[in-house]
Design a protein around this nucleic acid. Sequence first.
RNA 1: GCGGGCGUGGCGGAAUGGUAGACGCCGGGGACUUAAAAUCCCCUGAGCCUUGCUCGUGUGGGUUCGAGUCCCACCGCCCGCACCA
Length: 839
Amino acid sequence: MSDQRFDPSVADGRWQRAWDEAGTFRADSASNKPKSYVLEMFPYPSGRIHVGHVRNYTMGDVLARYKRMTGHEVLHPMGWDAFGMPAENAAMEKGVHPGGWTRANIAHMKSQLKRLGFALDWSRELATCEPEYYGHEQALFLKLYEAGLVYRKESEVNWDPVDMTVLANEQVIDGKGWRSGAVVERCKLSQWFLKITQFAEELLDGLGTLDQWPDKVRLMQENWIGKSRGLQFAFDLSNGERLEVYTTRPDTIFGATFVAVAPDHPIAQQVAAMNCDAAKFIEQVKRGGTTAAELETAEKLGFDTGIGARHPFTGDYLPVFIANFVLMDYGTGAIMAVPGHDQRDFEIATKYGLPIPRVVAASADEADKPFAGEAESGEGVLVNSDFLDGMSVEDAKREVIARIEAEGRGKGQTVWRLRDWGVSRQRYWGTPIPFIHCAKCGIVPVPKDQLPVVLPEDVDFQTPGNPLERHPTWKHTTCPSCGAEANRETDTLDTFVDSSWYFLRFASQPADRPFDPAEVAQWLPVEQYIGGIEHAILHLLYARFWTRALNHLGMIDFAEPFASLFTQGMVTHETYSREEGGREVWFGPEEVTRGKDSATLIADGAPVTIGKVVKMSKSKKNVVDPDAMVDRYGADAVRWFMLSDSPPERDLPWSEAGIEGCGRFVQRLWRLFGTVQPGVSGADQALDRKVAQTVVGAAADIEALSFNKAVARIYELTSAVEKTAPSASRNAAIRTLVLLAAPMMPHLAEEAWTQVGGEGFVADAAWPEVDPALLVEDEVTIAVQVKGKLRDTLTVAKGLAQAELEALALASDKVQRSLDGAPVRKVIVVPDRLVNIVA
RNA sequence: GCGGGCGUGGCGGAAUGGUAGACGCCGGGGACUUAAAAUCCCCUGAGCCUUGCUCGUGUGGGUUCGAGUCCCACCGCCCGCACCA
């Protein structure tokens, strides 16, 4: 046995079938073991699994298998985030139906996942594009509607005037449509919204309970929600009207030198109606995309309306500008501009020659210090500000709010950066929004007994625009309340809605309801959720909101869906390219031969440029096909590579050498597993200790998802066992190694399990127990430093007294030599760790 | 632009404020072999006056007996920015 190679092409499939037949990974909600729900973000069925998926699902799999070994009933399901734009793009480009394309992709990707031996409960598989899923989503949407959390309002979209279609942000490139190349216009449509802002305070406070989420994600969500205390107040305008502005810096009110309104603010519209130049300005700034990044990086532009705004304290008239960086969605859509202490205002003031007074300075005697080419937004004391002079920023804020409130001109207000969630998409491949537009009755929800509203199959993608809108019959229906002819809503839901409750559907899948509350109560919240950092804000915030909304409706009894969150890094690979005909042409790793410092294209033998190591993407062709890797090295080697070396939260650079090394280690373990010698006796206490430390350490590492550290421990133990002579301890160590390897290399471990005397599946075996006495160390190594530099080490009994440590350290030759007769001024002793002698 | 993160040998990385570089990859040397593959052993941060010494964790400052770790400023890269998923 020991000189045979482990053959994954035989073993992998055998164990995968055996687990399937035994139903090993089916989650039993009737079990009385403690429950554990391990979930990875479900994939979009783009066509093929990529290495990033493999990494994500391997991490979840190790945890799920480990949890099983530590006595938990584990729910570890998989499904498909199956609605979305790529299916419609495929339909347009290849003439295939989005449904057929998506379902074929799912079938293929499922077979790819199966080959990796993931401990998934496939009986709970779901795809969001099936009416059995999205019908329940429609029912939930109507529940939210009844609860007053759904409404319609006008909102801007990217409009491609040539293709006559709404574009997603990613379809707008440099302000132009990706297919037509036409300059994109911003245009207003009446759309559906969810009142996530009603939960702003809750979502913010809830972050405090999520102590097993990464701080960075909580911080990002906190900033996204963006609670700020500010002042809303009115300026009297020279035209007799009043203008409400909102500011987070009322303390700087004496530094305001102009007032600015958003291009779609009523004042701006009013001016535009009478002034051609204003209208042109507004038209100009409304060109281009709608994203915040685009708006904020665009050149700051302003248009002086000629209107004046009377300063509430000085009585001076400030010019009112229309400015492209003022957002209609935030605050009142109008601001007081303080160029000295806001960078955007600074740029406008510089451009249009407006004064830039200083009203905050480091100290009172710096009141006239000039600005160094940019605004200063830091702390300090108020200067040049009348009754505020000498106050801190915080005190001045309070004072201004109090005075404005006393005058009845405005009031202190909490404003949120978070906006309501627009869920309307003018697209086919999504969940139909279950409403009917009736000329008489207005907007009427589809009655529950008529759900699901099913997407039509016969759709045409050869003409641009929304196929639901153009479909000859689908939208024509009758009004549920008056029976007259009426139209179905042709918008579909944002796919983030699909992913906002799928984790509930995994827990139970009744046909007549979205989920069974009792089953959901058993499994939820998800004990460990794992996915990419790119979802830190939107998906995770929407899922939290949806969960809280259902909680308010009394449908579930918890408020947060994911108790613990882990965000993994990306899988990256270097890129290969060449200039051809003035543009960069990319080549895949399988198309080139990699030398030490160079690479050549196999096709023509000529060199290619080795580019940066970046996230694997189709456009740069730096992708590695997991199937090919499984073919060559087996599932366990691929899994092991995913876990080795890189800490899981960081990016993992794919390397051919790395995966080869993993393949070798699988064989090395296999050889070691074959060296168990029955009938050998004798203990090896050093090995017993090493085994005990490894078991405890690896368990802690896996629970912390520090798989790279668990991997390093297994390497160490493997080397240690290899070096020892046969003994009962050695046999036991090998058996333990099989168990330690089981979550990570399940096929190899199953294959070896019976050899080392195991029964049944190793997947069902218990995690090894450890004698705590073996973990107690009796000797420690002490670092001896002189002035903070290491000069010697001492091996002493653990717990040795400070005075003795000090004496031993001073007795060291090396210490005496580096002291070189200098008098000892101070000695710092950290028991069991180090002695630092300061001379 | 704004918000968040990361930066340690040739490479991936390890290190409760306490021995920097565990573990792996690559590379070098050796053993075994007719030979190769496979496997095993040893070496592998840089430099030097090599019983050892000096330098060294993106850059520049600071706190501390002691800083990869804490603080300040900067540089570079990555993620997100509400219609990509």
